[in-house]
Write a protein that binds this DNA or RNA. Structure first.
Lengths: 345, 345
DNA sequence: GATTCGTCCGGTAACGTTCCCGGAATTGAG
DNA sequence: CTCAATTCCGGGAACGTTACCGGACGAATC
């Protein structure tokens, strides 16, 4: 088996007694072929164990059947969900997915982008690390951006979560439970996601006369360790108890929860925490981390749909889609209002 | 930009004033070319924004620069880690990774395997779902199996974790803390991983005169929900407290922990739980889930290395590599021995 | 000075497929 | 019955690259 030459379309054609053009028509579901000839060819292909060479197909037709997905980290639970959503949808469209992890490094992102281009993917789905960098070479092929950099690339398709709505969900939830002025643990300040998040926070709290400057804000990477450190700084700065914290990611929120416990404080009694992601890990903590759930799989699926639309030329102008978040209530936020009522009674 | 024809190697050759053969030599780092000519060509390529067409390269040379990775689920934290390890290593070898999730479905696995083959990947890394199925078509190209199916494919490269050593680690740890006869939550019985796990368990406990039949065993899928249900059945069957449970995966162990809490029992006081995976989520529960950590990233990295070895023809006979596990102690297992000593004192 | 050798380069044929075009066979209309 | 239209098929070129072969040139050897 290992030595036998791979079967090509001419082998199939020969066995079926037709020309290779005809064989190609049968194998690519072209319309201009009779039903019986098609059947004959397919049988021959089956018998020979023929497998279409997608490299050749891509080279001749320009359709490689592959899409590129460049994200920060496939091992990060949020991005893994996005990838899975994209994968399932790509399968439906008959496309394979070339996945790369840029690891939040501008340089690796650059390298990976040239890799996917050289692989002649039909289009790219990208969460840009080098957000501010305009790159003309990116504009010349179908591309969908995912994440918060839509504003910087107004002429490109974009899909992400509706941060404004998500923040409103979280803030409203906190407010209803008596947490009027939560502390914030935000992501790296230079990232666009940060300004978008802060803008949403400002939008919500502005209506209540609270500017972000009134809020205690600490910065953190998207890791539990960094979140734990940030929470430590908050507990130092804000001696008031009870305290509420809105974290920009679940992993950060979970880290904050660990810091809380480490200080001998109780969540949710002393410190209420709400996260932003909705990953599975948040359901395992005690208490479970109440969080705004981003539509991760849907983001992956939708971005593939949009990319296919671009590829097939069905889309003339840039669209920007925000998928809405939902709140997963688990138990990391105390209800001060109810507690007060109980006390009175 | 969008309309401009893509630059090819002949454009580069023309601009550099050489033949396309020479240009190809420069671009592919071939040795038989003078330094200055190479430099000239590279400059021309740079100026034109030339990008090598890997489809064409693959088609002519037979080296597509792509590897296939077919795993059960990229959104599962364990497999995401494996994928990440593979990705990083593939990058080092200058290869891109085509990733598919079979979702534990034999049919989807079959479909994805033909997809990667049609994409003309240079080799495949596979965790087989249809474990018992011998498929001659798999034998005709470089391939590395990951997971527990090594025994069934003795003529194929295999890399996985050292289950025997991992089980010993867990069982020894339990035994040292006074849990002599733990209950087991195992995975789907038809999977090879199950028999391998049970064999390892039998091997360890056999030395103490305990056969697996003496142990309470419940079956579960690799999800927390299923683990929770299995733990419920164990608590019904085994009224004895304290109780110890060895779970075959962390997600299952975390589910078991939730079941414990739901019954009003305390972990680790009433129920000790030890997991098997070492995923990040296990560090967030209270108590953190003590677990045997499988070398997930290393599995991914090693499998890529082995695959490249096969591709380059450096490997003549099948190798089977078991990477060792280590124990992550977190707090889900009580120490009965110490407790007894304290009581005495 | 003739021969050999090594280095470097150009021309041409592949790789496996699809696309385009022309032609044969069949069908339908008048 | 004729002619046009339609359906279906075959032949060849093309996609962008590398493999192979042969030749030019200078250096080294006798």
């Amino acid at each position: 088996m290992r030595g036998s030459r791979r079967q090509t379309i001419v082998d199939v054609a020969q066995r079926a007694g037709v020309s290779k053009s005809t064989a190609a028509r049968a194998l690519s579901n072209a319309p201009e072929i009779s039903t019986e000839t098609r059947k004959k060819v397919l049988e021959a292909a089956q018998a020979l164990g023929y497998e279409r060479n997608h490299l050749a197909v891509g080279m001749r037709s320009g359709r490689s059947g592959m899409l590129g997905l460049v994200i920060p980290d496939i091992a990060n639970p949020f991005w893994a969900e996005v990838a899975r959503g994209a994968q399932d949808r790509a399968e439906i469209h008959g496309r394979a997915l070339l996945i790369f992890s840029s690891d939040w490094s501008v340089e690796r992102e650059r390298v990976h982008l040239t890799s996917v281009r050289q692989a002649r993917v039909e289009g790219i789905i990208l969460n840009r690390v080098a957000e501010r960098q305009q790159d003309s070479r990116l504009a010349d092929m179908p591309m969908v951006m995912i994440g918060s950099s839509a504003a910087l690339f107004p002429d490109m398709d974009n899909v992400g979560s509706n941060i404004e709505q998500g923040v409103r969900l979280a803030a409203e939830y906190l407010r209803n439970r008596g947490h009027l002025q939560p502390c914030l643990i935000v992501g790296p300040r230079q990232r666009l996601a940060h300004s978008r998040f802060m803008h949403a926070v400002g939008g919500y709290y502005g209506a209540y006369g609270i500017t972000p400057d009134n809020l205690i804000v600490e910065e953190s990477d998207y890791t539990p360790e960094s979140g734990e450190a940030a929470m430590g700084r908050i507990l130092d700065r804000a001696p008031k108890r009870p305290l509420a914290v809105l974290a920009v990611s679940d992993l950060i929120g979970l880290g904050a929860m660990m810091a809380t416990r480490r200080r001998g404080l109780d969540c949710p009694r002393d410190v209420s925490i709400i996260g932003f992601d909705g990953i599975q890990a948040s359901s395992f903590s005690t208490p479970g981390l109440t969080a705004v759930q981003k539509p991760s799989r849907a983001i992956g699926a939708t971005s593939v749909d949009m990319l296919i639309d671009q590829i097939e030329g069905r889309n003339d102008e840039a669209r920007s889609i925000s998928l809405s978040c939902k709140l997963i209530e688990r138990g990391s936020v105390s209800d001060l209002v109810r507690a007060a009522q109980v006390e009175v009674a």
